[in-house]
Design a protein around this nucleic acid. Structure first.
Length: 494
RNA sequence: GGGGGUGUAACUCAGUCGGUAGAGUAACGGCCUUUUAAGCCGUGAGCCGUGGGUUCGAGUCCCACCGCCCCCA
């Protein structure tokens, strides 16, 4: 008889004994109140306050005529103590023989402490809320198999407290980002995910089809072009937090669907974002980082990258380095000289044939420079050739007023002064189309150009990769560990 | 797409030179009314990822395939 057969047998005996293994819930004490009671009372006092708590049984310690069990809910673990002499022999035997790790249980009784000081509900009554029919890994060992952790995230969350906490931090970080922007008068908006033209970034899109209109549509690779249409309409500060989809490889830093924060700020210039980004990131690391909580001064996070790990210091200001300077330093190439870039690319065995200079430059930067950008660094003054949606810098037409933020060798953010000249934008779109690059749109987004004809105020835009930011906050080296249900190849097994 | 690694009980993992499949936990039975990885005694538990091959004999060696992980393109 295997584990689930045993549990079905117990289910029958519990039902026969009057339990409702899949019944309705009931009102329960807030465990924060319990914490207050425990904090206020005399630790030596007899249990007095009557409480009712519920949770999942994560440990069972059977002493024959009494038993301890740990009940875990979202607030943590609380011990309950069940005694035969209190609940009566029939009830006691029914629960003792029927309970398993993983079951949900409600317990009411006096709240107090054991001789060893452990906060405990001394149960006068206990009621099964839900029977768990599948064997749960014991908490002490957890669930280590990464494939099971991703395919059955519910088991991972239930068995691995650090995974549970990681996703709580992700949620807190998202809430903090919204609060940060709303405090600065940014308005959250929702723009389409289904795009007739996949624009706003260089990436291969997912293609889908709408039956009634009988048209192919793309899952968005970026919300950028829609958000900027809103600036034309008069909204001056907008942001969107949402999923982007890029039909590309999977890696520890890439998932085909990922979460991006994009914000647009009318009348600002690209580099106006820098102090805001410094404040947002250092606040996030201090308030929500896995290693920063509770310490107002600490803005560092210890990352398990490399052999020894690395400490990343998010205290502002972050370093600023120009793109050309970094490319010169680490790739010995001139960012504005095509022959020099091609020569450096060949040295690094980067494909040159049939590829645009923007792609070659980007690959060269990725191969030679990114790994060196461990401490938070704003890379500034991107070559205009690789910034098709950016306005040229007034001081130097070769570059855009564009930056990317790197930390721990990862790109975290990308922002710039937005191009708002419709004729210039049209020319750049036409150049993209004629390049026949599969990562660039195959047709010109004439409606976007038309929107610009109505007039878009000068503006600064930014995109922040939320998943990677959460990786930094939680010192997690794999994007799959900060995405609840990462993409895996489906299996036929049940 | 290429290379490397990995897959053994519900969970975490051993398995030597090719020679009867192992431990802890969980489960089951027994004892135990303050434990907290509870303890003690006992029992059952396996498509060794899948399919071929070599061999008297394969978890182990070879080939292919599948999943997952890492690196590279």
């Amino acid at each position: 008889m295997d584990v689930s057969e045993e549990r079905l047998r117990k289910l029958d005996s519990l039902v026969a004994g009057g339990e409702e293994p899949f019944g309705v819930g009931q009102g329960l004490a807030d465990r924060r109140l319990i914490a207050e009671i425990l904090g206020a009372e005399d630790p030596d006092a007899e249990p007095q306050a009557g409480v009712c708590i519920a949770g999942r049984v994560t440990a069972l310690r059977d002493h024959g005529n009494s038993m301890f069990f740990d009940l875990r809910d979202v607030s943590g673990r609380l011990q309950a103590y069940l005694q035969k002499k209190v609940v009566g022999p029939e009830r006691f035997e029914l629960l003792k023989n029927g309970l398993d790790l993983g079951d949900f249980l409600a317990v009411s009784g006096g709240l107090g402490r054991t001789r060893k000081g452990e906060p405990t509900v001394f149960a006068s009554a206990a009621q099964l809320l839900t029977k768990s029919l599948a064997g749960m890994p014991k908490e002490h060992f957890g669930l280590a198999d990464v494939e099971t952790r991703y395919r059955q995230r519910y088991v991972d969350l239930a068995a691995n407290p650090e995974s549970f906490e990681r996703f709580q931090i992700r949620s807190q970080a998202l809430a903090e980002m919204r609060r940060f922007l709303e405090q600065r008068a940014f308005m959250e908006v929702e723009t389409p995910v289904l795009h007739p033209i996949a624009g706003g970034a260089a990436a291969k899109p997912f293609i889908t089809h709408h039956n009634t209109l009988d048209i192919d549509l793309y899952l968005r690779i970026a919300p950028e072009l829609y958000l900027k249409r809103l600036l034309v309409g008069g909204f001056e500060r907008v942001f969107e937090i949402g999923r982007n989809f890029r039909n590309e490889g999977l890696s520890p830093r890439h998932n085909p669907e990922f979460t991006m924060l994009e914000a647009y700020w009318a009348y600002a210039r690209g580099y106006d974002w820098l102090p805001l980004v410094e404040t947002l990131l250092s606040d996030l690391v201090r308030e929500h980082g896995a290693f920063g909580r509770g310490d107002a001064e600490l803005r560092e996070t210890q990352l398990p990258w490399g052999d020894a790990g690395v400490v990343v210091d998010f205290a502002p200001p972050f370093a600023r380095r120009s793109y050309a300077e970094l490319l010169r330093e680490h790739a010995d190439a001139d960012a504005f000289d095509e022959a020099s870039l091609h020569a450096a690319a060949r040295r690094e065995q980067i494909d040159v044939e049939g590829r645009t200079i923007a792609q070659v430059t980007d690959d060269l930067f990725g191969a030679c420079v990114e790994e060196h950008l461990v401490q938070p660094t704003f890379v500034t003054d991107f070559p205009l050739t690789m910034s098709p949606l950016s306005k040229a810098a007034p001081e130097d037409a070769r570059v855009a007023e564009r930056f990317e933020l790197f930390a721990a060798g990862m790109e975290l953010a990308n922002g710039f002064s937005e191009l708002n000249d419709p004729a210039e934008q049209l020319a750049r779109f036409e150049a993209q189309v004629s390049s026949r690059d599969p990562e660039l749109p195959s047709e010109v987004d004439h409606d976007y150009v038309n929107a610009l004809r109505y007039g878009m105020p000068p503006a600064a835009g930014i995109g922040i990769g939320v998943d990677r930011l959460v990786m930094l906050l939680t010192a997690t080296p794999t994007i799959r560990d900060v995405i609840l249900f990462p993409l895996l190849r489906p299996t036929g097994r049940s």
